[in-house]
């Protein structure tokens, strides 16, 4: 019987393909651990809370209500969105919250596992995957609310609505890719986490989250370049049955994210021992 042999030494075995394969293998083999961790956190989160799942809606709902209020009172004047404004605003804030969470997921789930990271050797990829599971669970609930909005405000059913889950997966995928790159540094310095939430607050205003892309001006060019735009707009267009304005950019962006995600995974794998060393030091 051949025993599995592990070698630990200072030279990192830095063949990209080998590392990537190891990372993906671990991800598959640790799916039970990932599910178990996700189930644990979800259960624990709702067992100690009275309103439970409601909290998942509150942030996107309140942001949407603020904008709906501003718009309906005429405090601000927004370009016509082509659909009932409440649905537009809510779908925007909801998608935005999903992307934001996706970016934060790798860093927060790694951080939460600090105590076991420094003591037990297990496939670290499971942390990222369990974070994705939790995120998908929370997002699924939010999307149900969005569907209710769509029907209540008379947008009605479009076949493209069935593609919405894929668009959500794409949004998660996009966010996780960004998050993976930020995680190693973010584990070392708390500043990174703060910068992310601070920065994203700004980015939201140059993304068509609560208002449409203006017809002209500098804002229009920024929004057209902004990689968050196609992710949000396409998902919303699918949900509301609008023509897809950003399809080429969207597909190109997602294709570009595939290799980037792989690089991110390898970076994550290489950096974990270095981070563990600093955490326990």
């Amino acid at each position: 019987m051949g025993l599995e042999t592990r070698v630990y030494q200072k030279e990192n075995n830095l063949r990209f393909g080998k590392l990537l394969r190891a990372s993906l293998t671990d991800m598959v083999s640790s799916r039970f651990l990932a599910t178990q961790l996700a189930v644990r956190d979800i259960k624990a989160q709702y067992r100690q809370s009275y309103f439970g799942i409601l909290w998942a809606f509150i942030t996107p709902l309140t942001t949407a209500f603020v904008w709906i209020f501003l718009n309906s009172t005429g405090t601000i004047r927004l370009t016509d969105t082509g659909v009932p404004y409440p649905v537009y605003a809510f779908s925007g804030t909801l998608l935005w919250s999903i992307i934001k969470e996706a970016i934060n997921t790798p860093i927060s789930s790694t951080n939460a596992a600090k105590s076991i990271l420094t003591k037990i050797n297990f496939p670290k990829e499971a942390l990222v995957v369990s974070g994705i599971f939790k995120l998908l669970f929370n997002s699924a609930i939010k999307v149900l609310l969005l569907v209710v909005f769509i029907f209540v405000f008379g947008v009605g059913f479009h076949w493209s609505l069935l593609l919405l889950p894929f668009a959500l997966l794409a949004a998660v995928f996009f966010g996780i890719t960004i998050g993976l790159f930020l995680t190693p540094i973010g584990m070392l310095y708390k500043d990174v986490g703060r910068l992310i939430s601070f920065g994203l607050g700004f980015v939201m205003y140059v993304t068509p989250v609560v208002y449409a892309i203006p017809k002209e001006g500098i804002m229009r060019s920024i929004m057209l370049w902004n990689p968050f735009t196609p992710v949000i707009v396409t998902a919303r267009d699918l949900a509301l049955g609008q023509p897809l304005q950003f399809l080429p950019y969207y597909i190109g962006l997602l294709l570009a994210c595939v290799p980037l995600l792989f690089v991110g995974l390898v970076f994550y794998r290489v950096s974990i021992p270095i981070i563990v060393e600093r955490m326990s030091a």
Binding site: L3, T5, Y8, Q9, K10, T118, N121, P273, V276, E277
Partner: peptide, 23 residues
């Protein structure tokens, strides 16, 4: 030995399934 951190010099070779009663 548990593979949590990498050494700065030298080498560890471990065969088989490793269990740790650390925590």
């Amino acid at each position: 030995l548990n593979g949590l951190i990498n050494p700065d010099a030298g080498k560890v070779t471990i065969k088989g399934r490793v269990g740790a009663l650390i925590e």
